[in-house]
Design a protein around this nucleic acid. Structure first.
Lengths: 197, 197
DNA sequence: CCATATACGGAACAATGTTCCGTTTATCAA
DNA sequence: TTGATAAACGGAACATTGTTCCGTATATGG
């Protein structure tokens, strides 16, 4: 290959058109707003309308409805994961765990439809649980290990399993969700230090 | 009113036609089968087809899709409630509670879509949670009270709240669901006998 | 066996996800 | 600046599914 052709090895074949990027951003913004008010089941046309584009344009950027939902939720997951180390540095292990759990509950409760998408089983949403696990599992694992060491909770709890369970409980929303998650965490504490059956 | 008109006070105005009853039964049977294989989201036409009737007939008996779903699930709830007193008589309170919970988990897990319908929030499904609560709450309340008395679990747990939480966890299905519910029940045991803060 | 209320079947309608394609336009190079 | 062209756009059209409507068929009671 000639050096001229190779300049900027990636992004060689023409950069994305400005209107395309504009519309993609507008669609994400519109979708976030619509999902927040009407829920994730809102008609595609409503989102396209709010973004000021045709449905064809929407489908060019997000080949399936679910792709748009996934794109919107993806960016909401990071902030939650990043809070884990902060709380770990700020509180004793057991309390850091409790607090992050409540933080997580509030997050899932606020995003109506996240839990449903997560547990739908529909392969179209598969990238969402994948990202969810990849990002949140290490966060929770660190908290669990820190609390295991001094014997505050039972050892060997699987982080993914716990994460999924809590996200299910969280979908109830409100104080019920918070109480039930607290109860579940208390389950981790029950007979935590036992060595005999 | 004359005594002649009053004979058999209810069912006075012409008894239901035999074909109507036949079709209603057939629809329920078909729906149960279809729900079991294709899930509760299966098209109405599939159910009508399997029952050998037109969609008009289906809608005559079940004005909304959800009414059919509710009708199918309703009858599945009773058997579960009736097991509570049996287990209570057979095991010590704490174990009876654990065992019934697992029984309940298996029940909800088996009926894919029950949990979703239960927690959808759609007013069309309102009769379902209502029946669910009415039938299962007393069953669980008795188990809880029996286990509270000897101090095996913390007092004051709300049966409905617990029921809803467990049905959410149960929708995961499989061993994960069983483990998480067991963990939640252990939460009830954590510091059960404490009297000071 | 007739009259009639009841039930039936399926075409038609409405809402919504998705595809298609003729039209418009941003980008690049001359 | 301007023209060629690949890329993106818009929205009509299509497919699927819940629901309604109404002309037709039939079970029931006399």
């Amino acid at each position: 290959m000639s050096e001229g052709e190779n300049r900027q090895n990636e992004a060689l074949e023409r950069r994305v058109r400005a209107d395309a990027r504009r519309n993609l951003d507008g669609l994400l913004k519109a979708a976030m707003e619509v999902f927040a008010t009407s829920g994730v089941d809102a008609p595609v046309r409503e989102i396209a309308g709010k973004a000021g584009v045709g449905v064809g344009t929407l489908y060019r950027h997000f080949p399936q409805r679910s792709d748009l939902i996934v794109a919107v939720f993806r960016r909401e997951i990071d902030a939650c994961a990043d809070d884990a180390p902060v709380l770990a540095a700020q509180y004793p292990p057991g309390e850091a765990l409790s607090r992050w759990m409540q933080r997580f509950v509030d997050f899932v409760s606020a995003k109506r439809g996240l839990s449903a998408a997560l547990h739908s089983g529909d392969p179209a949403y598969e990238p969402l649980p994948a990202y969810f696990d990849q990002r949140l599992r290490p966060a929770l694992e660190n908290l669990l290990q820190a609390a295991e060491k001094p014997g505050e909770i039972r050892p060997g709890m699987d982080a993914i399993e716990l994460l999924h369970a809590v996200s299910r409980l969280a979908s109830a929303g409100g104080d019920d969700a918070r109480r039930m998650v607290a109860l579940l965490v208390d389950g981790l504490r029950y007979r935590a230090g036992d060595t005999q059956g």
